[in-house]
């Protein structure tokens, strides 16, 4: 078995909205491994996104621990968390979150400007098949293309982990598959640990492991013996 990249123990996150306390995560123990492609499945509000935000250093748990390799993320202050995100984590979001006023290349450059050992933005965009669309603005790209720019932006820094929140959620099946291909390729070629949140059960078949969530807890963890290629997926 390969080394763990994330290890969470008793991870709990409570949102206090004044009158009601919402337990978004309720004692999650989970190990995630280097180079692994993991899919997190579960209904809305089951805690997937909260976990992803905590793993990515965007949010902090209310209690419990979360280790990234040897680093206890709960002990990092804001500045250290910022450095952690900059050096180790790549994010891909459902709504792409591209900066509208920057071209595809410049959106990737946003990352390469601050990363320690980035690849050239052009290389990152080539990896996701967008070498012909370098100087297009987000408004000039299709949804799938925009999401692939977001993936290029996420991988350009050569991250240790790639965290994707519903990367195909806003896409139709055909463009969704292009995005999955890009993620698959990154996972295979760069060996980046990739964690993908999805509602879409079809996607689980391309993962090494599938973690199911319900009510802030891990319901099950299953290993995929027969992974299929992204092209074979349809929904």
């Amino acid at each position: 078995m390969t080394a763990t990249v994330f290890r969470t123990r008793g991870l709990t996150r409570i949102y206090d909205t004044g009158k009601v306390q919402v337990r978004a995560l309720d004692g999650v123990d989970l190990d995630l491994f280097e180079s692994e492609f993991t899919v997190l499945l579960g209904p809305s509000g089951s805690g997937k996104s909260t976990l992803l935000n905590i793993l990515g250093g965007l949010d902090r748990p209310s209690s419990g621990t979360v280790m990234f390799r040897d680093i206890d993320l709960t002990r990092l202050d804001d500045t250290q968390l910022t450095a952690y995100r900059r050096d180790h984590v790549g994010f891909v979001f459902q709504f792409y979150n591209l900066v509208a006023s920057l071209t595809a290349r410049e959106n990737v450059q946003l990352v390469t400007d601050v990363a320690r050992d980035p690849m050239p933005p052009e290389d990152a965009l080539r990896l996701v098949g967008l070498e012909a669309r370098l100087d297009h603005f987000p408004a000039e790209l299709s949804g799938g293309e925009q999401q692939r720019v977001a993936i290029a932006r996420a991988i350009a820094k050569r991250p240790d982990v790639l965290l994707c929140d519903e990367p195909t959620g806003a896409l139709d099946s055909k463009t969704g598959v292009q995005v999955l291909e890009a993620l698959h390729m990154v996972n295979m070629q760069l060996g980046t640990a990739t964690i993908v949140i999805t509602h879409n059960a079809a996607i689980r078949r391309m993962a090494h492991r599938v973690v199911r969530f319900q009510d802030g807890r891990v319901l099950s963890v299953e290993t995929n013996d027969h992974r299929i290629a992204p092209q074979e997926i349809a929904w």
Binding site: L58, T82, A83, R85, F93, N97, L110, V111, V114
Partner: peptide, 14 residues
Amino acid sequence: RTEIGLLKALGYSN
């Protein structure tokens, strides 16, 4: 807001 969140996610400091 989302762009600010994104920049922070990308590792830009406050």
